[in-house]
C-alpha cells in the first residue's frame, strides 16, 4: 500500500523500459520516478544510455517495452510533439537550435503550440494573430530576462558563443512553459564562470518557476550540489539511486566510474 501511494506522487514514472538498437541493448529494464518540484539527476559513464532514456521520454526513440507515465498519461507510442505539448520540455546536449533564426525567433518558435490562430489570420496578420503574437512575445521576454539574454535578443544564434548557445537552448526549452524540464549536459564544455551561471539558472528555474528538472550531467560537483536524488546508469542498467551523499559512497558507483580494485 505504501508503495502505491509513493508511485502516485511521481510526476514522471519510468517503469522497466528497455531499448535496443539491433543487437545492442542501450537500456535494460530501467525504472525511476521523479517527484514534482525535484531536481533529479541521471549520471553514468559515456554510453550508459542516459541520453537514450531522454530520447525515449520525449518520444524520439521508441522503447521496446516498459512504460513511461507523465501525470498518469502513457507516453510510449505518442508522437514527440504531443509529448512536448503535455509539458515536457527538452534542452539538447549537442546544441540543436534553429541556426538561421535570431534568439527571439528561437524562443518564439517554442511557443507555437500555445498559439491557436490559423493560416488565414496569419496571412493577413489580423485579429487573434496579432494579439497572440504580442501576448506570447511578452512571455518570451520574461524568459529572456530570466536568463539574461536581453543583449542578444536579435542576434542570429549562429554567431553566438558556445556557452551562450547552451543558454539559449535552455531558454528555448523554458519558453515552452514546461512542467518538467529534461536538461542534457547543460555545462559540458563550459568554463567555470559559465558553469556557475548555469547552475544558478537551473536552481532558479526549479525554485522560482517551480519546474521539475531532470538533469544529465558529467560534472559531479554540479550534480552533487544541485540534485535531491541521483540515479546512476551503467551499460544501460540502473545500478544505484539515492541522495548525492549515498551515491558518492556507493561501492557499485565507484566501481563503475573508477574500475575495480585489483589486489
Amino acid at each position: 500500500m505504501a508503495i502505491v501511494s509513493r508511485e502516485a506522487s511521481f510526476q514522471l514514472t519510468v517503469k522497466e523500459v528497455s531499448v535496443s538498437f539491433g543487437g545492442i541493448k542501450a537500456i535494460q529494464d530501467v525504472s525511476l520516478g521523479v517527484r514534482p518540484g525535484q531536481i533529479y539527476s541521471i549520471i553514468g559513464p559515456n554510453g550508459a544510455g542516459k541520453t537514450t532514456l531522454f530520447n525515449c521520454i520525449s518520444g524520439i526513440y521508441h522503447a521496446d517495452h516498459g512504460s513511461i507515465l507523465f501525470d498518469g498519461v502513457e507516453l510510449i507510442g505518442m508522437k514527440p510533439h504531443k509529448i512536448t505539448q503535455l509539458g515536457i520540455g527538452r534542452a539538447f546536449q549537442n546544441i540543436e537550435l534553429f541556426k538561421g533564426m535570431t534568439v527571439l525567433d528561437n524562443l518564439m518558435s517554442a511557443r507555437s503550440f500555445h498559439m491557436s490562430y490559423g493560416l488565414l489570420r496569419a496571412a493577413f496578420y489580423l485579429g487573434s494573430c496579432m494579439a497572440q503574437e504580442a501576448q506570447n512575445r511578452d512571455l518570451v521576454e520574461d524568459v529572456i530576462e530570466f536568463l539574461d539574454l536581453q543583449h542578444v535578443r536579435k542576434t542570429p544564434v549562429m554567431s553566438l558563443s558556445y556557452g551562450m548557445q547552451k543558454r539559449v537552448e535552455l531558454a528555448r526549452a523554458l519558453a515552452m512553459e514546461p512542467k518538467i524540464l529534461l536538461v542534457d549536459e547543460p555545462v559540458s564544455g563550459m568554463n567555470l564562470e559559465e558553469r556557475e551561471d548555469m547552475a544558478r539558472y537551473l536552481i532558479d528555474i526549479n525554485e522560482e518557476k517551480g519546474v521539475t528538472v531532470v538533469l544529465i550531467e558529467h560534472d559531479m560537483g554540479l550534480v552533487m550540489d544541485l540534485s535531491e536524488t541521483v540515479t546512476v546508469l551503467n551499460f544501460g542498467m540502473k545500478i544505484a539511486e539515492g541522495t548525492p551523499g549515498e551515491i558518492s559512497e556507493n561501492p557499485e558507483v565507484i566501481k563503475a566510474y573508477l574500475g575495480e580494485v585489483h589486489t
Binding site: L97, F98, M101
Partner: peptide, 18 residues
C-alpha cells in the same frame, strides 16, 4: 517560424511541440 524550424532541425522542431 515553424517552417524555418523544420528546415533547420526537424527533430528539435518536433521536440518543441511543432
Amino acid at each position: 517560424r515553424c517552417f524555418v524550424a523544420i528546415c533547420d532541425r526537424d527533430i528539435a522542431a518536433e521536440a518543441m511541440g511543432i
